[in-house]
Write a protein that binds this DNA or RNA. Structure first.
Lengths: 269, 269
DNA sequence: CTTGACTCTCCCCCCGGAGGAGATCTTACT
DNA sequence: AGTAAGATCTCCTCCGGGGGGAGAGTCAAG
């Protein structure tokens, strides 16, 4: 019989851990002195402890280990848990490797381009929810004509007694870059106005998103940035890009205050 | 200005997370209504939020992100943190991959050898602490003579008025298997007996350990098991193996109750 | 018998939120 | 203007695998 300290030294498992395993019914001491509460372990229990350590090394939780070791498991169940474990581990490895690539990309960027540390505007990947909107789609001669499209949209909405329930969204229905005769859709989420024919804007599973601050004349710079990012990070564009007008003339006194989000659907190559 | 729910939808960050970032001084709302306590965010703050998300994706903690974004950091410091991060991530990947190999080895074992699920006695890798012992070393004709060695050890210790302070240990000072004229050391940690010439048994950084239950006549089977395990798991033997007599004739009424631990120093190939 | 080393239970902490309770606030509809 | 629904607030507990420490009780050796 060993006291917990001796047993801990023998097994290289901390006393804290042993007490926890006791509490979780993973490894009950062979005897507990009813008066002092001291735990006494027998030499045979090292086998059991080793089983626990093996399961822990495989990455199972202590709770799973308790279920397995307390007998409620068949070989085929164990096999299935191992398969699930393998799947999870493979995913973990992929995830960590991808994260590693991101870190290395940052390091390269610092080495090459000097100290930018964190730019004000960073590209992030996120999903975009589907949303019901009222929208108008048209082929417009030049970019500057998109204002008119939004104006017609606004008139339709107010005429129907509806209200805008979110920021304006613009979708480029072009697969390539064009600067004339552009197929463009302007949309607003609305509330009320049951007469309006709403239409569901599909969600985007993965979109590369970048916030653009300031006048629309500089939007192309942000597009260049996000395009470079997509290329550098091994994504490719797989859908129509959008602009979301988070802050525009109705809340900003100056064009320099405008805030626009660029969303580009992407997929991992 | 967006209420927290709208801002959450825009940014695809949960309300819970936004409130946490507020608490951690990562992202304070642009305005908090002093009467209702409602948080109001401005469109510009999405940039800041994206910075947070990027740092989180790189695997930094929120606390680190707070330090970085709140200005107390220079580029070279950021670079060092990235380097540390890379090192940690590389280690994580190695660790998870090794764990994955363990799981796959288990799966192969189940497929090949049918349902053993968990054997009673599992091999674990652990470290062994250095320990001060009194020991005798001799070349003995056959294995069975090791008993005599321990007997002499026992007599020396009691004669010196000392006591054994732990289980007996046997070290094989042979690099290959021999069944006659074996160079063997028998050792006991002791307390008291200042006249005894103690000697420090070195620690082992990595030892493959296996508990053997029962008579010593079956020890060879456990040696075969641990040898196979070492080979299967990509280790190689790099030192003298030991046996630790955790339960032997002084506490056991029958040889079938003996408990012995085999320790073999190994290194990863 | 004393003293120092061990052990006991109980509580808080880590990390990044998730889930929920109960109260208050805003907003849309009548 | 009232009311009901939905949003939001703070505060609490929980997850995993223990680590660290307080305060009290126990064991073993000289």
């Amino acid at each position: 019989m060993f006291k917990i300290g001796d047993f801990s030294k023998l097994s290289q498992v901390t006393i804290k851990a042993l007490r926890l395993y006791d509490e979780l019914n993973l490894l009950k001491p062979a005897r507990i002195d009813p008066e002092s509460g001291y735990r006494y372990y027998s030499a045979e229990q090292i086998s059991r402890l080793n089983q626990i350590l093996v399961l822990k090394n495989l990455g199972f939780t202590l709770e799973q280990a308790a279920v397995m070791l307390n007998g409620g498991i068949r070989t085929d169940q164990f096999r299935e848990m191992l398969l699930a474990r393998r799947k999870q581990l493979e995913e973990n490895v992929r995830f960590e490797q991808e994260r590693l690539l991101l870190v290395e990309a940052r390091l390269r960027q610092i080495e090459n381009e000097g100290g930018e540390l964190m730019s004000q505007n960073e590209v992030v990947i996120k999903s975009v929810e589907p949303i019901r909107v009222y929208s108008l789609r048209d082929v417009i001669p030049t970019f500057s004509a998109v204002g008119g499209l939004f104006h017609r949209l606004y008139e339709d909405i107010t005429a129907a007694g509806a209200k805008m329930a979110g920021p304006g969204i613009q979708i480029y229905h072009e697969s390539e870059y064009k600067d004339h005769d552009i197929d463009v859709e302007a949309a607003f989420p609305v509330t009320g106005g049951s007469k309006l024919a709403l239409h569901e804007l599909p969600g985007i599973a993965k979109a590369a998103c970048l916030i653009h601050n300031g006048s629309y004349e500089m939007l192309h710079a942000s597009y260049a940035l996000i395009g470079k990012w997509i290329e550098d990070n091994g994504y490719s564009i797989c859908g129509n890009s959008r602009e979301v007008y988070l802050k525009t003339d109705d809340q900003a006194s100056d064009q320099s205050e405008y805030v626009t989000e660029i969303q580009i659907p992407v997929e991992k190559l």
